[in-house]
Amino acid sequence: MTQPRTSSRQADFRVYLGSTLLFIYIVFSTLIVGVAILGGYFLPFPMRYKIADIWIDCLLFMLKLCCGLSYEVEGLENIPRDQAAIILSKHQSAWETVALRQFISPQTAVLKKSLLQIPFGGWALATLKPIAIDRQNQKEALKMLIDQGIERLQEGLFVVVFPEGTRVAPGAHKKFNAGGSMLAQKSGFPVIPLAHNAGEYWPRNSFLKYPGVIKVKIGPAINSIDKKSKDINAEAEAWINKAMLDIAEEGAKK
């Protein structure tokens, strides 16, 4: 892993106040929406999904209102309209675990099984067809990712995979795991690479959120048919790394 970059942003009163207000909103809104989704357990999946979408829309509105943090997306035309796909995304922050649903939908994501044990929020998440894996059992986790991933793709859901496996600080790099690319190889569905710099504004393991505009770049589809998993992974990793450099250079010019 390369050396992570240290943020030069300074936290002032507005940053502390906005982050506190957002935290309070997240706690209470998650409780309310979690109960609503659980209460609608017997409703069709699209209706439960819509309730979660409303919560995410409101959360991102509050993020902008309280913390001055928004985002812009380049490459939306690369998202397939006629089929699902596997999204291989950079993982820097908690932001992308929710915000990607605003422009890549309907979707599910590969996540830690332990997250489903969180009261209300995790319980509600369990009803939204996540691919929850146990990282302690890698062989079983890979089988679950492929089996459930193919099922979700065939249902028309985009499958979001964070191939680094954990949140990685801006400027750092962690070798991509092969799970997402193996799902692509086995399923024949395309891979869409995605890069962003959310960690610059919503740092990992940080209470504070800084004002600014998160940059998201979505790459062209990578065909997975008749390709080896390692080649799919290498192509996606190369595109994402190049896009991250482009985002950094664009930010330095401002």
Score class of each variant (00 low, 15 high):
L142W: 10
I222D: 01
L142I: 14
I86V: 10
V27C: 12
L116R: 02
F28E: 10
E151W: 12
V73N: 05
I214Q: 04
E72S: 11
P80R: 00
S19I: 03
L115D: 09
L21N: 03
F23V: 05
Q83E: 13
R135F: 11
L115M: 09
V161M: 00
V161R: 01
F13G: 08
A248I: 10
A84R: 00
M1Y: 14
P163N: 00
V98T: 14
L153Q: 00
L100K: 04
R48H: 13
Y210Q: 06
F28G: 06
V110H: 07
L60Y: 13
A126I: 10
G251T: 02
M62S: 14
Y41E: 12
L145E: 00
V159N: 00
E151M: 11
P4E: 03
N205V: 04
S29P: 07
N78I: 03
W55H: 04
L63M: 15
V33G: 00
G219D: 05
V33D: 03
K174T: 13
K209W: 07
D231P: 01
M182P: 03
S29I: 11
G156N: 01
A109G: 08
K175N: 14
I26W: 05
S7H: 03
G121S: 08
M244Y: 06
R5Y: 15
S19L: 07
D231Q: 06
L60T: 06
R135L: 05
L100D: 05
D231K: 03
V15S: 00
R204P: 11
G212I: 04
W95C: 02
K186W: 08
F103H: 01
A221K: 10
V110T: 04
S206F: 11
N241I: 08
S29V: 10
D226C: 09
D53V: 05
I51D: 12
P106I: 00
T30Q: 10
R101E: 11
Q83V: 06
V110G: 02
K113N: 09
T30K: 03
S29D: 13
K50R: 15
T97K: 01
F13D: 12
G68D: 11
W239Y: 10
E74N: 06
V160L: 08
W123H: 10
C66G: 04
L43P: 04
L43S: 08
T108F: 08
V35R: 08
W239F: 07
E237M: 13
I104N: 07
G171R: 00
T6R: 14
P119G: 06
S29N: 13
K217F: 09
V35T: 15
V27T: 06
